Amino acid sequence: MYAEEIHNYLKSFFNETGCEVLSDEGHLLMVQLTVDIDKKIMNRPFYWQYIEATNSTPNPARLTLITNRTKIDNPLMGEIIHFGSGRLNQIFKATKDLGSFVKMYQQFSNEEGKQQTLTPYFCVNYKVSYYCDYTKEKLYSLGINLINGEIEDHFHEFVSQLDLAPLPPKDTFCLQYIIKPARALERLDLMIQNIIQKDDHSWAEEAKKRWVKEQEVLDYFYVGVKEKPESYEIEKRGLEDRFNPRIKVEIINGGLFYIK
């Protein structure tokens, strides 16, 4: 996920959740949070417990988020946000909690008396995490046409450019989907598996090599010890937890979109 994508995602998140964007410089966002969003992403439960217990006036946080540090002379002027950062993961979780599934319709001006047909698309946004002693995460947004089965990648980027609303516009006809959403999800899951299989997995082989070297170092300190102590087994398991390559796929959210 590139800096520009993160920036656009954050801007959409704050706009959709009613937070006021005070400044947008393309690489830096200054945002006034609402009470609800502060509670979800700022990790200050004791503050809000105090405010609610004393019936005091709430003071939700104001954030300055840097999405591209290369364009900032003084990185201390705000919080640096990048893919994998704690704050961004909190926002992902808040997005999931607030709207794990949506149903939206494209809005447009229609000629009086002329009916417009809308086609259903099923979208799933995935996060794929590659774990070893390093962590790499990727986002995939896939949408499938529920009429003909064609799959579109970068679907979120596509629909974010459209004017969408929870209700269909006047004089529209929504096509009944042929592919059921459950079947669509199966196909998108299969596509994610294929994407992962075709990805470069040299990171896993490198992690295993580092694991072997670290194990050799550990074994060196116990040369000649017939019955190794519990501390050896604990360190050995620690190396496995640290270096063992693994992949985790999560669904962030999804939706049904009717598009002309």
Rank of each mutant, 00 (worst) to 15 (best):
L98F: 07
G99V: 07
G99P: 01
G99E: 10
G99F: 06
S100Q: 08
Y105D: 00
Q107F: 11
S109A: 10
E112H: 04
K114R: 11
K114G: 02
Q116G: 03
T117Q: 10
L118I: 08
T119K: 15
T119W: 04
Y121H: 04
Y121F: 12
V124H: 00
N125A: 00
N125R: 12
K127H: 05
K127E: 12
V128Y: 08
V128K: 09
Y130C: 00
Y130A: 00
Y131P: 03
C132W: 02
C132E: 01
D133G: 05
Y134F: 11
Y134E: 15
Y134I: 09
T135N: 09
T135Q: 10
L139P: 02
S141C: 02
S141F: 00
L142C: 07
G143C: 06
L146P: 07
I147S: 08
I147H: 02
G149C: 09
I151H: 02
I151S: 04
D153A: 11
H154C: 10
F155M: 11
F155S: 06
S160H: 13
L162M: 15
L162R: 15
D163N: 07
L167Q: 00
P168G: 05
K170S: 13
T172R: 01
T172P: 01
F173V: 08
C174N: 08
L175I: 13
Y177L: 09
I178V: 15
I178G: 00
P181A: 07
L185W: 03
E186W: 05
R187C: 05
L188S: 08
I196N: 08
I196V: 05
Q197R: 12
K198L: 14
D200R: 13
